[in-house]
């Protein structure tokens, strides 16, 4: 076991996969000579050379498309977006090409590609730099959408994403790149599509993913001090959704709060609520609530931004409401 920051866990995943498979390469802005805008790819240029660790101009549409074409003929590109906000200028490539080529070619062309980079709000970056994109990509069949909270999950999931034969959108966070966690020395993979119970509980299920796992962990502690036993389910993969884990947890607790970054309207939380009411209606003792970003473009000012983001206090209040402890 080693205690390493998440950026190193991600780097280890890419290095191991590049060492075992020569068709894997990393391409994106500032990934090579600058060591990555957030130092995720530090040292990789020296190890793998400029043909495999490739700096690009600011042409996301161009290099995302390049990656897809390379994947169609058997390479395994990792395309880094400096942040996912900038993937939107490549949205057509990901949605209309990466997601659809395998099916529309009748299964002839696989697209084994990973698009990765930090997602969601950091701090004080205002509206254009604070978008949470999971619902934008999870909407499309053909794309897998994967994320993590811990260093352990980050490494195991990224390795699986690189080996996956379908396109994977891999969502990171610049807020947690420096956060340390235990990672085994020996090789391991974490399967895509498997959620993880981060805290066991019996009264209410908190469903979340990404860095909101930490918000929920704080809420679990507060709830515990109030005599409420909350289960924390970290989805890890948003699509394909681990419905079994979700339904099992809700079957146990009968109550659920979904905690997500990004907007409530058409968000991933809305999908989870829909799944629960379709499949678990009889198991539920209360309506499922969502804690999300407030439905407003991200403001710059700190006091407003704090109001906008999910917080442990808001999660606690929602949990108490589904338990009938608060109105």
């Amino acid at each position: 076991m080693a205690l390493i920051p998440i950026r190193e866990a991600l780097r280890a995943a890419m290095r191991e996969e590049m060492q075992r498979d020569p068709s894997v390469f990393l391409m994106g802005e500032e990934v090579a000579q600058y060591d990555g805008a957030y130092k995720v790819s530090q040292g990789m240029l020296a190890e793998f050379g400029p043909d495999r660790i490739v700096d690009t101009p600011i042409s996301e549409c161009g290099f995302a498309g390049l990656g897809i074409g390379a994947a169609m003929v058997g390479m395994r590109p990792i395309i880094e977006f400096m942040t996912w906000n900038f993937s939107l200028v490549a949205y057509d490539q990901i949605v209309n090409s990466a997601a659809k080529i395998y099916q529309m070619s009748g299964g002839q062309y696989k697209v084994p590609i990973v698009f990765r980079g930090p997602n969601g709000a950091a701090e004080n970056l205002a509206s254009q730099h604070s978008t949470s994109v999971e619902s934008l990509y999870a909407h499309f069949p053909g794309l897998k959408v994967v994320t993590y909270a811990t260093a352990y999950d980050a490494k195991g999931l990224l390795k699986s994403a690189i080996r996956d034969d379908s396109p994977v959108c891999f969502l990171e966070s610049e807020m947690t790149y420096g956060m340390k966690g235990e990672v085994p020395d020996e090789e391991y993979l974490i399967p895509i599509g498997k959620a993880d119970i981060k805290a066991e509980g019996s009264d209410v299920t908190l469903v979340t993913w990404g860095k909101q796992v930490f918000t929920c962990q704080a809420a679990v502690e507060t709830l515990k001090s109030q005599g409420v036993s909350a289960e924390l389910l970290d989805l890890r993969t948003i699509r394909p959704l681990d419905r079994e884990a979700l339904f099992n947890s809700v079957a146990k607790t009968g109550r659920c709060v979904v905690v997500q970054e990004g907007y409530p309207f058409s968000g991933v939380g809305a999908e989870i609520v829909a799944q629960l009411q379709e499949h678990c209606f009889d198991l539920l003792d209360a309506p499922v609530l969502r804690i999300t970003n407030r439905d407003v473009p991200q403001p710059y000012a700190t006091n407003l931004e704090k109001l906008v983001m999910p917080s442990a206090e808001r999660v606690v209040t929602a949990a108490r409401r589904v338990l009938g402890l608060e109105r």
């Binding site: 600011i58 906000n85 900038f86 939107l88 200028v89 004080n124 970056l125 205002a126 509206s127 254009q128 730099h129 403001p299 710059y300 000012a301 407003l304």
Partner: peptide, 27 residues
Amino acid sequence: TSLGLGGSMHIFDKDAKFMGGYGIVGG
């Protein structure tokens, strides 16, 4: 200029015909 909503990257001033600062390169 933008009521504190935009910050450094998003300065706008209609009277000055200054139509803003934008954060997505080229956008």
